[in-house]
Design a protein around this nucleic acid. Structure first.
Lengths: 285, 285
DNA sequence: TCCATTCGATACCCCAGAGGTATTGATCAT
DNA sequence: ATGATCAATACCTCTGGGGTATCGAATGGA
């Protein structure tokens, strides 16, 4: 096809052959071969003049399109392999949506404008599942501590904080410990949804020798604080949630507050070419 | 590329090779060759499982597009060569635009819907020029009689007719001959524009022994009858023009009226694949 | 745990076909 | 008429695509 285009552009077998870095005789044969294969005369020629037939003229346009598609295919394959182009399915928790996701996504989109980011908001446990099943390339989640199938990069550390109704007896305390919360109804996400936070809470109370009483178990931290605002209980939620506490609630620091990492994670065996630069962005920020 | 698509679709070297009518070992080598040429790993594979890499997935889509473009190019080349698809630059006179062109074009478009008709309205002499220079594939024109470089097919015969102002002295005549028009100002297209009609008129008068007096020389028959309507003279115009005579004019038959052919013509050496079926349509109608 | 089976990779061979050189034949300008 | 130009042809070479035989790794059943 390149041969054909070269000849169609030069209308001279010798020159076209030279452009293709070959000698004229085999070039002539190639053109004849194309015409024979198609069963169509593409050039009107005698030993002096070469001209395109109507079919050849039409074929020239089609060849250019085909060659362009071919070049693009090769180029794009390399770009996708290098991670410059392609897609990245990024999972994240609602918690992350409010804290680290916006900046992370913005920075990544700046250095990789041709990567199509597919953002999937899910609950923490579902994110891990999807990562391991390959339905996500990477995700922002609470650190699970030790999963050999995942590689992680810390995006920052956060701590739990007490949130109580404004008129609650603990609202006036400077800092609160486990014992002071004894008997209170604790609103928290179930372990099946946010194991990291749930176990952090459990350990915190266990360390204080208190058996926590959990009631209501919504999935989102945002819902939890709404229920607190309604006076349905108290909650231990990430500090960065406090930025948007509903009216009628106050937050108090915890004594020896449990801390946890927010991490970017991806399958350890991930070969998604777009993931490494996401980790780079994460480490830089 | 076909090999790649086959493997991407089957994800099995043996089956893909079978689909390509070849054995597995050379097929494997081809795939490896593609990956090496691109410098990109397209399949993640061990001796048990074959899977597309992200780059391979993207490449698959591009390959399908490229192959489709290639198939279309080959198919279209054959269609264009056979005259089923392509373009046809058809010249015609304003006279023809009113008479034979609409039906001819309509019938042709019915049997050749994929041929792009480029209609070019020109004066008769210019049409001949353009045909010989190859700027038109075919044209509807007045018969010139004998041009060895053109092949023609008659589209019908027409005759000249007298058109005079409604209040003209000849308006009441049953039929009119040359002598009766002696001294009248004749409005006609110049020989440089419409030689066939002009010479037909000249011969008609010469046969009657009358020397015609030409005044005004518009290019279009339609303009000629408009000038007659304004009382600026009389004219001999094709009968089929009479269908749309302007108000204030009447037409009268001529005694021994000059006749002429309206023909479809194309360069005798024309290799435009779309032209033959236009001639077929013309002959049928 | 071991063996049979499956499947992709490798080794080696063969030949079609792409490319090279020399030459012919046709066309055009002088 | 003659030389120059240019595509086509003849003939040769050798790369590379395709074939067969085989290996080696992974899997599943006994």
């Amino acid at each position: 096809m390149r041969y054909f285009v070269a000849l169609a552009e030069t209308l001279h077998f010798g020159h076209a052959a030279a452009r293709m870095n070959m000698s004229q005789p085999p070039f002539s044969r190639q053109i004849a071969g194309i015409e024979k294969a198609l069963g169509v005369r593409l050039f009107e020629r005698n030993s002096r003049h070469v001209a395109l037939t109507p079919a050849g003229r039409h074929f020239l346009g089609d060849c250019r399109k085909t060659l362009a598609a071919f070049e693009a295919a090769c180029r794009d394959a390399q770009l996708v392999a290098s991670g410059v182009k392609g897609e990245l399915r990024l999972g994240f928790t609602m918690y992350a949506a409010q804290s680290v996701i916006p900046r992370l996504v913005r920075r990544y989109a700046e250095i990789r404008p041709d990567v199509h980011l597919i953002l999937e908001e899910r609950i923490p446990t579902e994110i891990d599942e999807m990562l391991l099943e390959g339905r996500l390339d990477a995700a922002v989640n609470f650190a699970t501590g030790d999963n050999p199938h995942l590689k992680t990069a810390s995006l920052g550390r956060d701590r739990l904080q007490l949130v109580v109704p404004a008129d609650h007896r603990l609202a006036g305390e400077e800092a609160v410990g486990p014992q002071q919360m004894e008997g209170e109804r604790l609103i928290a996400a179930p372990a099946a949804v946010a194991p990291t936070l749930r176990s952090a809470i459990a350990i915190y109370f266990a360390a204080g020798g208190v058996v926590p009483f959990f009631g209501f178990e919504p999935r989102l931290q945002q819902t939890i604080v709404q229920l607190v605002a309604e006076g349905l209980g108290i909650a231990l939620v990430p500090q960065s949630i406090s930025a948007q506490l509903p009216a009628g609630t106050v937050s108090r620091p915890l004594i020896d507050a449990p801390e946890f990492d927010v991490v970017l994670c991806a399958p350890a065996a991930s070969k998604s070419p777009t993931v490494p630069s996401l980790f780079e962005v994460a480490m830089m920020a």
